[in-house]
Nucleic acid binder design. Structure first.
Length: 882
RNA sequence: GGGCGUAUAGCUCAGCGGGAGAGCGCUUGACUCACAUUCAAGAGGUCACUGGUUCGAAACCAGUUACGCCCACCA
């Protein structure tokens, strides 16, 4: 900075790698991310969705993180007492699988080393990936309060889990029971209903004959899973199905197993499907399980947790499921009991992690009773205490909670929160409490064994918004920041997480965990495909940062997105972002070069037309950006700032300012310097939440007050003077300049060649244009400008344009291509006539005049007048040539 | 079976009741002393289709089509 003043050789290309981490360190060292900043401000809190410690961050995290950081930095700049609380998730099943995988490469199984040693390995894994994740967030510029960082398995969160579990248990909302659950034979654990992915697969429907025991023929059942018939304990038909009414109560002999099973009636059966008769396997199908309960049927499990046929499968015991299926069908064929095989596409449940087909089986597990919990969670959203942005996700959420089944929370894993339940080996007492018990409260025995299972990861994630703030203790943090303000997350996780936080919070805190849920979409690849490991189309945020800088990555992720919709990630857009950063860099270079002798308050300000216009535009853009941020329209906010910075500031104002900077009086120069610095600083401040690094780097170099751009007041345009007349005047000047440039281009006037211009308008407009003479000269390459009144003789052999009541002539005797000019004018006339036709139609419409707002009618009238003038002006010009 | 989303310029997408927008790409011209990661000018669109509401619809409503997503216990 001092250096750069002496040597003007600041590179013309911005190198983000040179500055980004310098500023991150600076912010960290000064404690600017702390929630203790702005102690008097109204609290604002975002609790970060904790990334899994399974691996590194992907583009989805980068998006999620960027959105949160934009909101956080913006609110902090507004003066709010801001806390963005970071953390990571232990991600039970996912992390354990990764560690097992790593061990397997060394030929070790977790059973070889035992639970304790395995957990040690997993903690090592956790530390390694945690550090990487945190480093990535540093690279992204995330302004979270690292001193409050949490982990779902840390001491505090673990205590919260126990408190919540025990409380729910004591209320009867957590229970243990043998019910049908989803079993993944690969992961060797239960998974919850939402962890089962349903995919449509081509399969078959086997029609099998079950002979009646009375010898009166057979009933035909249809099944997609013949192997389960070994565990059949009934055949069900619809009670009103005439084909079967006389068969209800009879028995059939289950082939192969030679078990006598009843024919029962149940309304669940769909008469239209298959043969209308269903084999019932209560131990291996959720529906059959329910029917089994209704009819008190025996549950015979024939498939084991290893996915193989078990001892109840008779001669098929030990056989793989699919192998058994084939052999069994063959046996039916030989017995003459195979009626038919038809094709059927049906949905198959797979484990979301490993895509193994999920086996429904009956097992003793822990469950959360959902109905009483769901109700307040639904109500909180319907009452508007918590609001989804965009609102359409409200329905997704409520529909799910309204139809929810009890949540199986026990997992047969080692990595996670151990279930706080002990079984007394002496008297069988079940002890559920927060602290580890040493003796049985019932019999006094000390042979206690803790339940070996751990909890579903999402049980602890569900407590995240308050466990991280110190719950169950009544901490200052909790009092200050709960309920939090906004949760930022993807729509793919509404069920898994958002809903669980809602009902957990309503239960434990009796208060909604956040006011807004800001939902974003997925980051897809350039072709619109989901980024995935298997496709290999994922893009590493770090590589992008390395290549383009974090600001460009953030910019790309925020622009052109609208809430809740997916986005495609395209390399070309990064270039656009990088170019913009470079533009800012160079605009600041320009400013610095021209501010070397700048002294604040050296002279009183003499604001010119361009100054007043620019300051007004800055105020409007600031108000617009701030309002859009308030609505979570981050993309819109950024677009407005971008347009202002590039088009109005760089392409127009900077050029105009050169007049005074290079050739002005000291007074004039000073005003230009002041406005230049003020507005550029305003732009940087507006951009800071989106592009924190470059804005800090440049802001620090400009004249400024304060220690960091992070802590200055976010511009919102309030209190600014709006120079409306100059704004309008400048608009006309700019249109006029564009019109002259257009004529020059059409007439092939070489870019470098200056040409005379004649401007004609009524008295007031003419003086307004005269005021902008230097602007027009500079930006329209005018050699000289002659200002004339409308009744002055029309110049001969000139091109002409008309803009908002102003005529501009380009006298080009000799240079002018007559045919071209005629064509150009005729086209312009046609356009104007079309517009006029439209306006005339509107203005002769009684309905419009009567019902449209007065200002709209007025605007249309004004436009009509303007176009009529324009048309007359152009026609007159055309006449000259004919 | 239910629910939701998307259809706007060659591409990617904003806009969501009052004159069709951006970036990229394309055409033309310019190394103009902040920036060629630039500047200037331009071409390019019956805003998917059909009805309706309204003085006025790309935008609101209904329906249709196409693509996509989510949920669901069709053996």
């Amino acid at each position: 900075m001092e250096e750069s003043k002496q040597s003007p050789a600041i590179p013309t290309v911005y190198q983000p790698q040179d500055v980004e981490q310098k500023w991150y360190k600076f912010w960290l060292e000064h404690g600017y991310f702390s929630h203790k900043i702005n102690p008097e401000g109204e609290p604002f809190c975002i609790v970060m969705p904790p990334p899994n410690v399974t691996g590194q961050l992907h583009m989805g995290h980068a998006l999620d993180n960027t959105l949160q950081d934009v909101l956080t930095r913006w609110r902090r700049m507004q003066g709010r007492r801001t806390l963005w609380l970071p953390g990571t998730d232990h991600a039970g099943i996912a992390t354990q699988a990764k560690v097992e995988e790593a061990l397997a490469k060394e030929g070790i199984s977790k059973y070889d080393i035992g639970r304790e040693a395995f957990l040690e390995k997993t903690w090592e894994w956790k530390h390694r990936y945690h550090d990487r994740i945190v480093e990535q967030m540093h690279m992204m510029g995330s302004s979270c309060d690292w001193e409050l960082e949490r982990f779902t398995l840390d001491e505090g969160c673990s205590r919260a889990v126990r408190e919540a579990f025990v409380e729910l248990y004591n209320k009867g909302l957590i229970y243990r029971g043998s019910y049908i659950v989803n079993w993944c034979s690969h992961c060797q654990t239960t998974i919850s209903d939402i962890e089962v992915e349903h995919t449509e697969r081509d399969g078959h429907l086997w029609h099998l004959r079950y002979p009646y025991t009375d010898g009166s023929g057979y009933v035909v059942v249809a099944t997609t899973r013949p192997e389960t018939l070994l565990g059949d304990t009934a055949v069900a038909v619809h009670p009103e199905d005439e084909r079967y009414t006389d068969k209800i109560g009879k028995t059939v002999l289950l082939p192969v197993m030679n078990r006598e099973i009843p024919i029962i009636a149940d309304e669940y059966v769909d008469r239209e499907f298959g043969t209308g008769a269903v084999k019932i396997t209560p131990a291996h199908d959720p529906n059959d399980f329910e029917i089994g309960l209704r009819h008190k049927l025996e549950q015979i499990a024939v498939i084991g947790k290893d996915g193989k046929m078990n001892e109840n499968a008779g001669k098929y015991a030990g056989m793989d499921m699919l192998e058994c299926r084939a052999k069994l069908v063959e046996e039916f064929r030989e017995l003459g009991l195979l009626e038919d095989i038809t094709d059927l596409s049906h949905s198959v449940g797979e484990c979301y992690r490993c895509h193994t087909v999920v086996e429904p089986l009956v097992s003793p597990q822990w469950f959360v009773k959902m109905e009483p919990l769901a109700e307040p969670a639904i109500k909180a959203v319907l009452d508007g205490e918590t609001r989804f942005v965009p609102s359409r996700f409200t329905k997704t959420y409520t529909n799910w909670l309204e139809n929810i089944r009890d949540w199986c929370i026990s997992r047969q894993l080692w990595w996670g929160h151990r279930i706080p339940v002990w079984y007394c080996q002496d008297c069988g007492e079940v002890i559920c409490q927060v602290e580890d018990p040493t003796v049985c409260p019932k019999c006094g025995g000390s042979h206690l064994e803790q339940d070996p299972d751990v909890l579903d990861t999402w049980f602890s994630s569900g407590l995240w918004p308050f466990s991280t703030l110190g719950w169950p203790d009544d901490t200052e943090l909790l009092k200050t920041f709960y309920p939090t303000n906004v949760l930022v997350t993807g729509y793919d996780i509404i069920f898994f997480w958002v809903a669980r936080m809602m009902f957990s919070a309503m239960e434990q805190m009796k208060q909604n965990p956040f006011s807004d849920v800001f939902i974003h979409g997925l980051v897809r690849d350039a072709q619109g495909r989901k980024m995935s490991k298997s496709l290999g189309n994922g893009i590493d945020p770090l590589e992008i940062i390395d290549q383009y800088g974090a600001d460009s990555l953030r910019f790309t992720l925020v622009t052109g997105i609208s809430p809740g919709n997916d986005m495609r990630f395209q390399q070309e857009r990064l270039e656009g972002a990088r170019n913009f950063m470079n533009k800012l860099w160079n605009a600041t270079r320009f400013a610095l070069m021209n501010l070397q002798d700048y002294q604040a308050d050296a002279y009183p300000l003499e604001l010119t037309l361009a100054d007043k216009w620019l300051l007004t535009r800055l105020a409007r853009v600031s108000a617009d950006a701030d309002a859009n941020l308030e609505k979570y329209e981050l993309g819109e906010a950024l677009r407005a700032i971008y347009d202002f910075a590039w088009d109005e500031f760089c392409d127009w104002y900077v050029e105009l300012a050169k007049l005074r900077l290079y050739k002005g009086t000291p007074e004039q120069k000073h005003t230009a310097q002041t406005v230049l610095a003020t507005v550029l600083r305003g732009i940087l401040e507006l951009l800071h939440p989106f592009a924190p690094f470059i804005t800090e780097e440049l802001w620090q170099q400009l004249p400024h007050e304060g220690d960091s751009i992070m802590l200055v007041k976010y511009p919102n345009g309030q209190g600014a003077t709006l120079y409306e007349a100059e704004e309008k005047q400048m608009q006309t000047v700019m249109d006029l300049i564009r019109a002259i440039r257009n004529m020059r281009a059409e007439m092939n006037v070489p870019t470098g060649k200056k040409a005379p211009v004649i401007i004609s308008a009524g008295e007031e407009l003419l003086s307004q244009m005269q005021e902008a003479e230097s602007y027009i000269k500079m930006l329209a390459a005018a050699e000289s400008i002659e200002f004339v009144s409308p009744d002055s003789p029309v110049p001969d052999k000139a091109a002409k344009a008309h803009v908002r009541g102003v005529d501009a002539y380009l006298p080009l005797a000799g240079l002018i291509d007559l045919d071209k000019e005629i064509a150009r004018i005729e086209k312009e006339i046609a356009n104007t006539e079309n517009e006029l036709k439209r306006l005339a139609g509107k203005l002769s419409n009684q309905g419009f005049l009567a019902k449209a707002p007065a200002d709209v009618v007025e605007k249309e009238r004004a436009k009509e007048g303007e176009y009529q003038t324009k048309l007359a002006s152009l026609r007159e010009h055309l006449e000259l040539f004919k």
